[in-house]
Design a protein around this nucleic acid. Structure first.
Lengths: 340, 340
DNA sequence: TTGTATGCGTTATCAT
DNA sequence: ATGATAACGCATACAA
């Protein structure tokens, strides 16, 4: 339990070398003001002693924590895991630590998490919003103290914070247009009732594509759930019960789309012959469900890397992220069997 | 970029209340030695000022970091995400931070990660080993300094560290026995060539069950891959090419099992009529692939909670985890359509 | 180029 | 029950 063994400090090195701790401190950080000779001596001895800088002393002194806070809705999708992996990679490499917490899609828990992060004095925050976040007040404390906040993927509709995301309107538009191009005209949209912009934008894209093809938007064809596997099954039931048969579905995520495909088949509908299905995310399940899902692919790992890199560059003063309003990543429609 | 606004410290409170910082410090930590009256005054003012203890000063002083290191092979399975979520929940609640890093199934990267954790002076380590870890030397530094290390799920074959896992021999035994009880006799086992014990134990269980039914172990029926979706497809090809038809498969994880089922079907084999399949993990894909997979369920979230809780209790001195060699969690066979 | 001295915010020891 | 003060290890303003 005890952490007794004494650590070696710059004092030890200074004493051994008969120089001041200031010199050692400077040498260790490669301060150009220190002579090459002294630096070498210091480095060598530090190496020999296995010296490690004490981050806490340094943080205390510098008034910053070298820690990045990450708040996500849930760590339960392949996509989110990929994003986190990307963040982790960049942060680790840059010597930053990560505090990760989950809002579980609750605006309230999100708000608590934000406060915790604040109290932990994170240097910056990376956030993907919950379904139900309807105001950004909790983040204002960060803004007031000039602590950078970057939203990724699930970004707010409008704010002064930096966003990293894809063009969800366009992605939704392309997904729907693909169905239309296959001759489908009664297209159901399965999504979530969310205050958060991502799903609203996908819906907008859906509506735009319909409009372009002269298909009137019918809100009776929009099914709201929580986008879970089970919600997909419910959506299938809904579709099956429709008085006028639908011939296409655009589901706002793959998990739910997979549940929907399975449900549709259970109801005796053939995919894609009777009804074509498009998902979103290019989750591995899209290649397991039969038929494989046509879906929108976008780069989770890269998004994570980019978010972390942007934040860290900003913290290092290498770039001012606050000047950047939005970074858009590209997304692609991947066509598979579920749309024939 | 600047973090200018001055934080309120115990000095501010002390000055305002005309008591010493020592008293404030004690009061804030609810030290029984401080009078109730003083305590109340301190609490109230701290509340009013929005005082937050500076963790770095505290860490510096107490020589501990309040940080737990987590090393996992990959954040790419539902199971692992669940474990992490469990760890995060407990750690966050106990005021511990998490540093998470991934070994990507490489013993070398794992070793580097261990060193990084050590240099970051984590208070304790939670580890799930890579496929290829064949010695525990990197962890010896921790042992030497009495920094607790707990292995979970992918635990070492034998060591003095604490392990949290399921009985993989038994789980493998039950999975295989289930196939045998369905009358299957030529049972393929798909697993990974790993130095790490989990998969070897599952194999042992497989062998045990066969022995119990008087079925000779045939190493030609053991297929080695990396347990990915693609490896599942390869395994299916292997099974299809078998001179003597197999009638059962036990795959060491669900992802791979799903790939295998799809591959088998592509080769014209009916599941479960021609060949029954059992997976492992109860991953969501097990309920998406058709037919749904019979699989071994075990509690990832609980495992994460338990690992974190054990570590933190140990750190708090509430329990000495080092006395505990192994904690076994229960696992259950979930029977679904893939075994008829 | 190097050294001196001080502060960062807590906790712990020793007095009172 | 409370106070004074010395660490904890590092970074920096200022001096030399």
């Amino acid at each position: 339990m005890s952490r007794t063994k004494k650590e070696v400090t710059i004092y030890d090195i200074a004493a051994q070398l008969d120089v001041s701790v200031a010199t050692v401190s400077r040498a260790l950080r490669d301060d150009p003001v220190v002579s090459v000779k002294t630096k070498k001596k210091v480095f060598d001895l530090a190496e020999k002693y296995g010296y490690q800088t004490n981050q806490f002393a340094r943080n205390l002194r510098k008034q910053q924590t070298n820690t990045i806070g990450v708040i996500i809705p849930r760590l339960n999708s392949y996509f989110m895991a990929a994003v986190i992996a990307g963040i982790e990679q960049v942060a680790n490499q840059a010597g930053y630590n990560l505090i990760i917490s989950q809002s579980s899609e609750s605006a309230e828990r999100e708000s608590i998490n934000v406060r915790t992060m604040f109290n932990n004095r994170v240097d910056g925050l990376l956030v993907s919003l919950s379904y139900h976040t309807n105001n950004l007040d909790p983040f204002e404390k960060f803004a007031k103290k000039n602590i950078p906040v970057i939203f990724f993927d699930r970004t707010p509709e409008s704010s002064t914070f930096t966003n990293i995301r894809i063009n969800n309107v366009q992605a939704g538009y392309e997904a729907t247009k693909h169905l239309l191009s296959k001759g489908r005209r009664r297209i159901v949209h399965v999504t979530v009732s969310s205050t958060e912009s991502v799903y609203r934008e996908r819906f907008r894209g859906y509506a735009q594509a319909l409009a372009e093809y002269g298909v009137p938007l019918d809100m009776n064809l929009v099914y709201l759930g929580d986008l879970s596997l089970e919600a997909g099954a419910d959506a299938a039931k809904f579709i099956h019960s429709l008085p006028q048969k639908a011939d296409g579905v655009f589901v706002a995520n793959d998990n739910c789309a997979a549940g929907c495909v399975i449900g549709l088949k259970a109801h005796g509908l053939r995919v894609p012959e009777d009804i074509a299905v498009v998902g979103f995310n290019d989750d591995p399940v899209s290649r397991i469900v039969e038929p494989n899902l046509t879906t929108v692919h976008y780069p989770g790992h890269e998004m994570g890397e980019l978010a972390a890199r942007s934040l860290i560059n900003h913290l290092n003063g290498a770039a001012d992220i606050m000047l950047t309003q939005t970074i858009l990543l590209r997304s692609d429609l991947v066509v598979r069997e579920s749309t024939g």
